[in-house]
């Protein structure tokens, strides 16, 4: 369970990223966060695993106070939160399996990390993760040989190998074509339903958000302007979220 209580984020240059954000996200929810570029979607998602620090309020994830974590505690805390990026963030010069295996690097003894000798169990778990996203046969192929959609699946497999309870996805389909985007969204849905992993997605495509998510959070200039189930989203709500620029979205 993720709880925001009156969270603020002000960047060092004075830009307000988040303003008095309060929300509660239960385990296993599929949440889409929508809003204009620069509205604070990324800031919201990245404050959950402390890739960004918040400057006010209280944020707890499964009863852990995120603001007070540091060093080793913070790294252990991040182990159970997966993250997916717009540009996949894979090492494209190596094979798929090596990318997935990196999710074990934080926990392995140092000599194994140094020489890159992974235990059998890690290899099997990595292959199983690849199987879950349907690209097992690509395990020993170099990442730069894969399409964008396949690369995002490798990234998802890397996150699954970490066995997270929450997945944060920052614009996961923005770099993909519409068909591939749907396939990747299907993967997220499957992971969410089959494994009860909470999924929080930042997304520009409103129609994908409405189709896949259970709950929509609309954010405008750092403030939550809508928070509710998909069924309550209508034209007026969207117009409010997108500050009257709705025509440009749909």
């Amino acid at each position: 369970m993720i709880v925001f209580r009156h969270v603020d984020k002000v960047y060092p240059n004075g830009f307000v990223g988040l303003r008095d954000v309060s929300l509660q996200i239960e385990q296993g929810e599929f949440v889409a966060i929508i809003g204009l570029s620069g509205a604070g979607k990324s800031t919201l998602i990245r404050s959950i695993n402390r890739m960004h620090d918040i400057t006010g309020g209280e944020l707890t994830v499964d009863d852990a106070d995120v603001r007070s974590l540091k060093g080793k505690e913070l790294r252990r805390f991040r182990r159970k939160i997966g993250m997916i990026f717009q540009s996949f963030n894979l090492v494209t010069r190596t094979t798929v399996i090596k990318n997935v295996l990196t999710s074990f690097v934080p926990d392995l003894p140092f000599w194994r990390v140094l020489f890159g000798i992974f235990p059998q169990e890690a290899k099997i778990r990595s292959l199983e993760a690849l199987d879950k996203v349907g690209i097992l046969e690509k395990a020993y192929v170099r990442v730069d040989q894969l399409s964008g959609g396949q690369q995002q699946r490798v990234a998802l497999a890397r996150t699954l190998a970490q066995d997270p309870s929450i997945i944060l996805a920052d614009e996961p389909v923005a770099a993909l074509d519409p068909v591939t985007a749907k396939q990747v969204m299907d993967d997220f849905r499957r992971v969410n339903q089959a494994m009860n992993i909470s999924v929080l997605i930042n997304i520009h495509h409103v129609e994908l958000a409405l189709e896949y998510a259970d709950r929509i959070i609309g954010i405008r200039e750092g403030e939550i302007v809508f928070d509710g189930p998909v069924s309550e989203v209508n034209e007026k709500v969207l117009s409010d979220i997108y500050a009257g620029k709705l025509e440009e979205v749909i």
Binding site: R75, R78, I81, S103, V105, A155
Partner: peptide, 8 residues
């Protein structure tokens, strides 16, 4: 960044 987010 991805490695950092994974807790490395």
């Amino acid at each position: 960044e991805a490695m950092q987010a994974m807790g490395a």
